[in-house]
């Protein structure tokens, strides 16, 4: 049984990169079916936090847990239960959308059938006529859609999204937020890193505000409502702890 139905737990996480302490003991948890937005400026430690859950970084202190298990003890299990969408996800440009999906699904150890691939591409609204074109001919937003389709097809419990709406047009951003909400409603856990205050408030159940490697505040959406954008924006712009 998972403790309190938590999928991701950061416990006093400390990370040192290039001699600099990037994470200074942050603690937060994300529950099953929850969308958690990690908000912060450049260099706040947002992406570093994601990488600790994937076991890419050595911890100077604290623990990262996925499904209650320490990442450091079974990194393969942690990675296999997570679909990771990096910032400006670069898939293979010389392959088309379907070939990219097939390759990455194969890498994950699952054979994607054509039907489910088409359904995932439909879900991210990638135009049908674009699916046989090489990604080199895609816009940044279209590439992002293919990467999101991959995350959907991985069908993992948890999604780690690093600036997922970067490069998307406003309509695509709205569609993406809807998609994330649907996935969360299906029981997926989403940890999303962004510096887009408005977008985070639109989609997240909770928001953690990172500043200089410290979690300086948390905001929760009221039942049936959304997080107060104004309050988050004020905190984001302020130098004070919340």
């Amino acid at each position: 049984m998972l403790s309190n139905r938590l999928r991701l737990q950061a416990e006093e996480l400390r990370v040192i990169r290039g001699g600099k302490e990037v994470l200074k003991g942050i603690t937060f948890a994300v529950a099953i079916g929850e969308v958690y937005g990690l908000l912060g400026g450049n260099g706040a430690g947002k992406s570093t936090t994601l990488l600790t859950f994937l076991g890419f970084l050595d911890l100077a202190g604290g623990n990262a847990r996925v499904n209650d298990a320490l990442v450091s003890e079974d990194v393969v299990a942690a990675r296999r239960s997570i679909a990771y969408l990096p910032e400006s996800a670069s898939l293979y440009e010389h392959l088309n959308a379907r070939e990219n999906l097939r390759y990455f699904l194969g890498l994950a150890g699952s054979a994607g059938d054509d039907e489910s691939m088409e359904a995932a591409l439909d879900r991210v609204a990638l135009p049908a006529e674009a699916r046989d074109r090489r990604l080199a001919d895609y816009s940044k937003g279209m590439r992002q859609k293919v990467a999101i389709a991959l995350a959907i097809l991985r069908n993992t419990d948890t999604l780690l999204l690093d600036e997922p709406t970067s490069g998307l047009d406003p309509t695509a951003i709205d569609e993406f937020h809807d998609l994330v909400r649907t996935l969360a409603d299906d029981g997926k856990t989403v940890l999303m890193v962004t510096h887009d205050v408005y977008g985070a408030c639109q989609v997240a159940d909770r928001i953690g505000l990172l500043r200089d490697g410290r979690l300086v505040g948390e905001f929760s959406a009221p039942a049936g409502g959304r997080i107060d954008t104004e309050a988050v924006h004020r905190a984001f712009s302020s130098r004070e702890a919340v």
């Binding site: 990488l51 990771y84 890498l107």
Partner: peptide, 18 residues
């Protein structure tokens, strides 16, 4: 350089793969 390194490892789960 292409920004795929972590994605490939995270997707396969194993550092040495592929």
């Amino acid at each position: 350089g292409a920004g795929r390194h972590e994605l490939l490892i995270a997707t396969s789960g194993i550092s040495s793969s592929p």
